[in-house]
Computed example of a mutant assay.
Amino acid sequence: MERIMVVGVSAGVGKSTFARRLGDTLNIEVHHLDTYYWRPGWVEAPLEDFISAQKEILRHDKWIMEGNYSNSIKLRSELADTIIYLELPLRVCLYRVIKRWLSYLGKTRPDMGKGCNEKLDWQFVKFIMTTYFSRRKEMKMRFADLQKSDPEKVIVILKSKKEIEGYVLNVKG
């Protein structure tokens, strides 16, 4: 387990925190994709720049990349030896997004692009609520296809806070 991809069903599922803890345990550098995607003031980076940044990371022997970004998930999943997927209930994800917003009000999270102060708007909440169930279904199909095409790839699916915590505590560095 040296090239690890951490994805999740939704914002607020705990991808960044999980990846950070896993990186500390395994002594592997964590790359939060939000830091490459978002430029100051919540401006999206050009897709070529975003992909290029990921390709640079993929050249390393060891890495943890955290974030969904379906426009580049294939690139990362092909080179990852381990994919860890987090899935918690929608209500938990929404609660955590609101809690995160209150905790970082007026500040930029460490896993976010510089100059992107924490924000929460109806559009983002609506996005979470309208994509949660379809994303859950899509991820299940994506992992089945990946497992079929590459049976050696390790895919870990964690569906509760207890499973997530247990995984981090039991992984060996």
Rank of each mutant, 00 (worst) to 15 (best):
G23C: 01
A11E: 03
S103L: 14
K162R: 12
L158Y: 00
V92D: 08
V30N: 02
W122Q: 12
I84R: 11
G67V: 02
G113P: 05
E29H: 12
T130S: 15
L88I: 13
L146F: 07
P110Y: 15
E44N: 13
K161R: 12
S134H: 10
I4N: 04
S149N: 10
G115F: 12
K15E: 00
G173M: 03
R142M: 06
L33E: 11
T130R: 10
M5G: 02
V9R: 03
V171R: 06
M141I: 10
S70A: 11
E56N: 09
H60F: 08
K55T: 13
Y69N: 08
V171T: 14
K126A: 12
Y69G: 05
S70P: 06
R59I: 09
Y167I: 03
K15I: 02
L105N: 11
Q54Y: 02
F124Q: 11
D145N: 13
I57R: 00
F50V: 07
E66Q: 05
A53Y: 05
E138D: 14
I83Y: 05
V9G: 00
C116P: 04
L86C: 04
S72R: 01
E138P: 04
R76V: 06
G115A: 09
G67R: 00
N117E: 15
G8A: 15
I73A: 04
S10V: 07
V168I: 15
R76N: 07
W38S: 05
Q147F: 05
K140N: 14
Q123P: 07
N27P: 09
N170R: 14
G23K: 01
D150W: 05
L169A: 06
H32D: 13
D49C: 13
L22P: 06
R91H: 14
L105A: 13
Y37I: 08
D121C: 14
D61Y: 00
L146K: 04
V30Y: 02
K99M: 07
K153P: 01
L75Q: 03
S103Q: 15
E66S: 08
C93Y: 04
Y69D: 08
S77G: 11
L33T: 04
K153R: 10
S52A: 13
H60R: 13
I157V: 07
W42A: 09
E29L: 08
S134L: 02
I164V: 03
S103N: 14
D34S: 01
L58A: 01
I51V: 15
R20V: 07
Y167L: 01
L90M: 12
R3M: 05
T17E: 10
K62D: 10
V43L: 09
F18Q: 00
L79N: 11
I157R: 15
N71L: 09
W122P: 04
G41Q: 07
I84M: 00
R136W: 06
L102T: 10
E29I: 11
T25D: 10
I4A: 01
T35P: 03
I157P: 00
L105K: 13
N68F: 05
D121G: 15
G113Q: 08
S149V: 08
Y132C: 10
M112E: 05
Q54S: 08
G41F: 09
V92I: 15
M5L: 07
F127A: 13
E29V: 15
P40R: 06
R39H: 13
S77E: 13
K15A: 07
R100D: 05
I128D: 03
Y167V: 01
S103T: 11
Y85T: 05
N117F: 14
E44C: 09
